Computed example of a mutant assay.
Amino acid sequence: MHMNSAPHLLNEDRADYERVLAEALRTAHEDRDPATVGARLTSEQLRATALNATALITAAAAAEYDQYVKLRAESRSATAAGVLAPAVGGAGEAGAGVAAVAAVLAPLLAGTAAAILLIVGYLLKMLSPPPPFADTLLSTGWVFGALTAAAILVAAVALLLTALRNDASHVADGGGPDRVPEEVALARDAWCEALLHRGMLPFLRAALAEQRPAKTAVDPPRSTSRIPKIGYSGPDFSSPAEGRSTDRRPTFSSPDFSSPDFGGPEHQPD
Rank of each mutant, 00 (worst) to 15 (best):
H2T: 14
N4Y: 12
A6Q: 02
H8S: 10
L9R: 03
N11W: 14
E12W: 10
A15T: 11
Y17K: 03
R19G: 09
L21K: 01
L21P: 02
E23T: 08
E23Q: 10
E23D: 09
A28V: 01
H29E: 14
D33Q: 00
P34V: 00
P34T: 02
T36C: 02
S43V: 07
E44D: 14
R47L: 03
A48L: 15
A48R: 07
A50K: 01
A50Q: 03
N52L: 11
A53L: 06
A55L: 07
A55H: 09
I57G: 02
I57F: 00
A59D: 07
L71G: 04
S75R: 04
S75N: 04
S75V: 04
A80W: 06
A80K: 08
L84K: 13
L84R: 14
G89D: 11
E93N: 11
E93L: 15
V98P: 03
A99W: 07
A100F: 06
A103G: 03
A106C: 05
G111P: 00
A113F: 13
A113I: 09
I116T: 08
L117W: 00
L117T: 02
L117S: 02
L124I: 01
K125L: 12
K125W: 11
P129D: 00
P130E: 00
F133Y: 14
A134K: 06
T136F: 11
T136Q: 12
L138W: 11
S139T: 11
W142T: 12
W142F: 14
A146Q: 08
T148S: 14
T148C: 15
A149N: 07
A151R: 01
I152N: 14
A158G: 06
L159E: 14
L159G: 12
L164R: 13
L164T: 10
D173I: 12
D173S: 13
G174A: 00
G176W: 04
D178G: 07
E182Y: 09
E183W: 12
E183H: 15
V184F: 00
A187P: 01
R188I: 08
D189P: 06
D189T: 09
E193K: 08
E193P: 05
A194F: 02
A194R: 04
L195K: 01
L196V: 05
G199Y: 00
P202G: 03
F203M: 03
L204R: 01
R205M: 04
A206R: 07
L208K: 00
E210D: 10
T216F: 10
A217G: 06
P221T: 02
P221A: 01
S223Q: 05
I227P: 04
I230D: 12
F237C: 14
S238T: 05
S239Y: 15
R244H: 11
D247G: 15
T251Q: 13
S253M: 15
D256E: 12
F257Q: 15
D261E: 13
G263V: 05
G263Q: 05
G264T: 13
P265I: 09
H267A: 10
Q268P: 10
D270M: 15
